[in-house]
């Protein structure tokens, strides 16, 4: 076995030391994202102000791909407008389908480390979990769901 692996250093670093993985004290909007078949389970929390994502974090459990992808996504979208975040989401989802141009990819910064997921059909849902949850939260925030218990972290 050689040491070439899909699990590159950027991905493993975000998995082991996720900067954005912590509860947000007073989130404005949040949404849970779950992949029932493999057990990935995250809660994405954001604070929006004048159409800008001011704060954001996630908690949850799952495989390295799901956790690193959510962490990298938050690095990208914090401080951006919701339109800009949704545009990056579109580029990311197209990258996962193998449908992006090289110059578009640059905008994704470290999220490029997940591009080879396009060759791993069973892991696509892990990579897109955070991004799909972001899309849902921005299109239909679940503010009324404030009483629901948050998933607890295991790590």
């Amino acid at each position: 076995m050689d040491n070439r692996t899909f699990y590159n250093e950027i991905l493993t670093a975000h998995n082991l030391h996720p900067y954005n993985k912590h509860p947000l004290p007073n989130p404005g909007v949040w949404k849970r994202g779950v992949n029932p078949s493999c057990g990935d389970d995250i809660l994405l929390q954001l604070t929006l102000e004048d159409g800008v994502i001011k704060e954001g974090s996630f908690v949850g459990t799952g495989c390295a791909i799901s956790q690193a992808s959510a962490d990298i996504m938050l690095d990208l979208i914090l401080g951006k407008t919701t339109e800009e975040a949704l545009r990056l989401k579109d580029i990311f989802l197209r990258m996962i389908k193998g449908e992006t141009e090289e110059d578009e990819l640059e905008e994704l910064d470290e999220a490029i480390c997940l591009r080879d997921v396009s060759h791993m059909p069973t892991r696509v849902k892990c990579a897109v979990l955070g991004w799909h949850t972001l899309e849902e939260i921005l299109k239909k925030p679940e503010e009324e769901d404030g009483a629901s218990p948050l998933p607890t972290t295991t790590e």
Binding site: T5, F6, C38, C63, A64, M120, R123
Partner: peptide
């Protein structure tokens, strides 16, 4: 410890 089983199986698949 510390490695999700899906990641274990994916790394083994690479081998």
């Amino acid at each position: 410890d510390g490695v999700h089983p899906h990641d274990v199986a994916a790394i083994l698949a690479e081998a």
